[in-house]
Write a protein that binds this DNA or RNA. Structure first.
Lengths: 117, 117
DNA sequence: TTGCTTTGTCAGTTGACGCTAACGTTAGTC
DNA sequence: GACTAACGTTAGCGTCAACTGACAAAGCAA
């Protein structure tokens, strides 16, 4: 339970960085080497290497070694936590049942105190 | 175009914080006052107020004033950028068409330079 | 072995972020 | 007006994260 949560936590933190999202898009369909990925950005290879480490530890990319090269590819399963959160938010926010209960409450009490404690 | 991107950027950064995700879940179905939200956590009301500001500026919550109280509710449309990114990743990573193109390229060119710039 | 390539790792700096405490503001009440 | 309740805002502090530059490791070729 707490393992999944921390995994989702890592994924969210990893995706907060725009450059890491860009990297992820880059390796979404193609498997690329660290150097090739670094060549697509204006920062040092060091920075990209660190980003790749973060992405790997967050379960968002796979690493495969071939000679001196390390090939990376996106790992869609790593986004499961994200999707779960999104779906939960959507269903909770748009659920018709809840909206009706709410409207009912507003009818009984003219709209002053939601009183949710 | 760049407006949407920065909006998505703000959303991702806002959701990177676990407490903000918790707040968002809290106001997903119910409209709550700032104080009620703060009561659900162990940090100061100040901290919660700042979190709510971040969420509001990221377009993830709506603010409605009623007397001295400020009522917050999740704004599902704010998650559009997230959903878009997720869907893009999923389709790109699992798209069979791309996989075939990739295999074809591997046949023509023995696998040295993906050339992504 | 020597040398070149590809990549990760290790200090160290800088900027951003989350938190608290004190203060300011707005709305309602006596 | 005076007082209280509900919030937001500011200043300051500690911590984390992204970046650079220098160095180390691992694979391969001459």
């Amino acid at each position: 339970m707490s393992e999944d949560e921390s995994a989702t936590d890592d994924a969210f933190r990893a995706l907060a960085e725009p450059r890491r999202r860009a990297i992820l898009r880059l390796v979404a369909s193609d498997e690329l080497a660290a150097g090739e990925i670094a060549a697509a950005f204006d920062v040092t290879r060091t920075a990209i290497s660190q980003h790749l480490t973060v992405l790997r530890e967050a379960g968002l990319v796979n690493e495969r070694r071939a000679g001196t090269r390390r090939l990376y590819r996106a790992r869609p399963e790593g986004l499961a936590g994200l999707r779960e959160f999104l779906d939960e938010m959507w269903s909770d926010a748009l659920d018709v049942g809840r909206r009706l209960v709410e409207a009912d409450r507003a009818t009984v009490e003219p709209g002053r105190e939601p009183d949710v404690a």
